[in-house]
């Protein structure tokens, strides 16, 4: 039986291989489904809820993409990827796009042959300590024991930071976030270090959260963003500009609630072009002219997505910080739609 299934699969594989080779956009359209690589479980960014439906900040971008391309935000198949499998899943074509809080680094962009389409969240590594430690700056952590995940860039950043400031520390290595949280709460280490967004989520769930502070120093740059394979620039453009459509929508005050109304009433020529009232921007990358309108309607503009999943009103309660619009002192800056 097993042999027959195996051979059957190999035969099917051979058949399917014949159709491969067209662009990713054509594949997605032919399949009528976007395959989106997401995190199996990261609070607020991407995780299945109790019913198995993926939710989160990264997931919302998958939905916007599906809405832009396939006219239906639900035509997404989410593939949960672990830290080990994520890049292979993308490189081998198992997923069309990877939106899984992956840091844009030089070697990933060049050596691993990926293209980072944009940065959807500017993160950075921070420290959380108990208040009773009496520390108010990471520079005072000399000699501290620090909980740190092994095999991550955070481990290297930590070493760099302490070396650069002529300080020493004792690492307490942990395997995953849950273990780190337990070690930290149980007093196994003075400070816990990971991405600031993760620290905020952990602090939000501590029973005595007021006794813990996140130190102001951010010791690394972690620009997280969606990435695609090298060699299909049109597909990369679609991911990039769908994201920027959400950013621009926030800048011009277009929300999921008022997108239809704005399209008919707006006088701003840029918004008209964005929403397909004037010109035909969508056609330049193989979509129709309402693509951005649908992307915005799917889960809202960038600000709405942020507030709904990780923003101040949620238990995680992240401030916009670097992820505010450029007009608000942040780094979000959508290039002009023209």
């Amino acid at each position: 039986m097993k042999r027959s299934v195996f051979l059957g699969t190999v035969a099917a594989a051979g058949l399917v291989a014949g159709y491969a080779g067209a662009g990713t956009l054509d594949d997605v359209k032919a399949r009528d489904q976007l395959i989106c690589g997401v995190n199996i479980g990261l609070t607020g960014f991407g995780a299945p809820d109790a019913n198995g439906n993926y939710q989160g900040f990264d997931v919302a971008l998958c939905k916007a993409l599906a809405a832009a391309i396939l006219k239906d935000a639900n035509k997404v198949k989410y593939v949960g990827t672990s830290g080990e499998t994520r890049f292979t899943a993308l490189a081998s074509g198992e997923v069309d796009v990877l939106i899984r809080n992956s840091t844009w680094t030089y070697s990933r962009d060049t050596d691993l042959k990926f293209d980072f389409a944009a940065v959807n969240y500017y993160d950075g590594q921070g420290f959380m300590v108990k208040k009773e430690l009496g520390v108010s700056s990471a520079k005072e952590l000399n000699g501290a024991t620090i909980c740190i995940q092994t095999g991550t860039t955070t481990e290297l950043n930590l070493a760099d930071y302490f070396k650069g400031n002529n300080m020493t520390y004792t690492p307490v290595t942990i395997q995953d976030d849950a273990e780190g949280q337990r070690q930290y709460v149980a007093g196994g280490c003075d400070a816990y270090t990971t991405d600031a967004s993760g620290l905020a989520a952990i602090r939000a769930t501590l029973p005595d959260r007021d006794n813990h502070i996140i130190l102001p120093e951010i010791v690394s740059k972690e620009p997280l963003g969606p990435l695609v394979r090298h060699g299909d620039n049109n597909w990369g453009d679609i991911v990039r500009w769908t994201f920027y459509a959400l950013v621009a929508a926030e800048e011009y005050g277009v929300t999921s609630a008022n997108v239809e109304e704005t399209a008919s009433s707006t006088q701003n020529p840029e918004v008209k072009r964005l929403l397909g009232v004037e010109g035909d921007l969508g056609a330049m990358m193989g979509l129709d002219k309402d693509w951005a309108k649908r992307a915005i309607a799917a889960s809202g503009n960038y600000g709405e997505i942020f507030e709904a999943n990780i923003g101040a009103a949620t238990p995680i309660g992240l401030a916009r910080g670097l992820n505010a619009q450029w007009t608000q002192g942040g780094l979000l800056y959508a290039p002009p739609f023209r």
């Binding site: 995190n39 199996i40 479980g41 990261l42 609070t43 607020g44 995780a47 299945p48 809820d49 109790a50 593939v79 949960g80 990827t81 672990s82 080990e84 499998t85 899943a89 995953d176 976030d177 849950a178 949280q181 337990r182 709460v185 989520a201 952990i202 939000a204 769930t205 501590l206 949620t314 238990p315 995680i316």
Partner: peptide, 22 residues
């Protein structure tokens, strides 16, 4: 390999729910 086994996979998913984190 990113399959949802009961011990680590499902547990990770449950823990990523803000209600059960920790």
């Amino acid at each position: 390999v990113a399959l949802n086994d009961p011990l680590k996979g499902i547990t990770q998913i449950v823990r990523s729910d803000i209600n059960w984190k920790g």
